[in-house]
């Protein structure tokens, strides 16, 4: 569904809050019809990026274009093209659902005759029938989130930016909102942020993993699994008599192995090594032969497919290799 038309172009965007770099020189592009999942731990810079793209805040340096319009030169034009659901869906709680949607429709400059149809459309899409007369303060979290989505879509925007759209919802509500996003995403460009991996796999056709203000991975969930993922081997050796010097090189020499993590110091006389290889091949036999050839003692050997969750954990935690090694 994605065409080559670029709906969002981000170039070298940096945002500093005092000494802290919330965003550190990030660049990416989103094509029309793409659903981009923005993945990262809390504080990684997801919300900051979204606030910049919706022109709520300005970047410290760098530039961005939304629907071909520069965010600093034409902020009001950008806002007209974009529908935005801020984090935790802030709404005027003293208003009724219908009043809120009418207010937003008015600010969105939808002409009076069109307003009714626009409101009816989002009420239908977001499943708000029967709720229109309710005061927003009396709604459950799930319905508030739907009102937030409805107000973001009232002007039928070609770009939707959703900051943690399923945050705080129960599993049924999450499933419904995901379904909603998937159907919305058929015709529109969507950026959604989340720290739930399942969400990205369910709704997004491209994933951007962001950590400490930097993009650490970019691709479709499948691509990420095959390039950053693949197979993982947990090898446990008794600490070699001849020291640990040659261990890493020995395993790296095996065809199909991309990466070897050897801990600095052995634990209780054993060495927990993580070997990463291609998804398709299985090098357990080669590892075994290498161990025998070097006269080491093997205590354990296991192979696992690495899924998106493990990739995410590995890319967004610094001490990942040690932690993963322990979680066998």
């Amino acid at each position: 569904m994605a065409t080559n038309e670029l709906m969002i172009e981000v170039k070298n965007l940096t945002k500093r809050y005092g000494e802290v770099r919330a965003l550190d020189d990030i660049s990416f592009e989103v094509k029309r019809g793409q659903v981009l999942g923005f993945l990262g731990p809390n504080g990684a810079g997801k919300t900051t990026t979204m606030k910049i793209l919706t022109t709520f805040i300005a970047p410290s340096s760098g530039s961005a274009k939304v629907a071909g319009l520069d965010i600093s030169e034409a902020p009001l034009e950008v806002r007209r093209k974009v529908g935005y659901l801020p984090e935790s869906a802030p709404l005027y709680t003293d208003m009724q659902v219908i009043e809120c949607l009418e207010f937003v429709a008015e600010l969105r400059n939808i002409s009076k005759p069109d307003r009714k149809t626009a409101i009816a459309r989002v009420i239908e899409t977001c499943g708000l029938k029967g709720m229109t007369g309710r005061e927003i303060r009396t709604l459950s979290k799930g319905y508030k989130q739907r009102v937030g989505l409805a107000q973001a879509m009232i002007h039928d925007p070609s770009i939707l930016i959703l900051d943690e759209p399923t945050n705080g919802l129960d599993p049924n509500q999450i499933a419904e909102i995901r379904e909603l996003i998937r159907s919305i995403g058929k015709e529109r460009t969507v950026i959604l942020s989340t720290h739930h991996l399942a969400e990205v796999q369910a709704a997004a056709d491209r994933v951007l993993i962001i950590h400490k203000g930097k993009i650490v991975a970019d691709g479709s969930p499948e691509e990420l699994e095959s390039s950053k993922g693949g197979a993982r081997y947990d090898v446990t050796l008794a600490t070699p008599q001849d020291g640990m010097k040659g261990v890493k090189e020995a395993f790296l020499g095996i065809p199909g192995v991309n990466e070897v993590d050897v801990p600095q110091t052995p634990k209780n006389g054993t060495l927990d090594i993580v070997v990463r290889g291609q998804r398709e091949s299985d090098v357990r036999a080669d590892i075994f032969r290498k161990v025998v050839e070097r006269n080491w003692v093997m205590l354990g050997l296991g192979r696992k497919q690495v899924d998106l969750e493990a990739i995410f954990r590995r890319l967004t935690t610094e001490t990942a290799s040690i932690k993963e090694g322990g979680a066998q």
């Binding site: 919706t54 806002r79 801020p86 709404l91």
Partner: peptide, 14 residues
Amino acid sequence: RSGTLEMLLTMPVR
């Protein structure tokens, strides 16, 4: 406090 300012100021409003 409630965050509605963000919603308001990301609409085409000066």
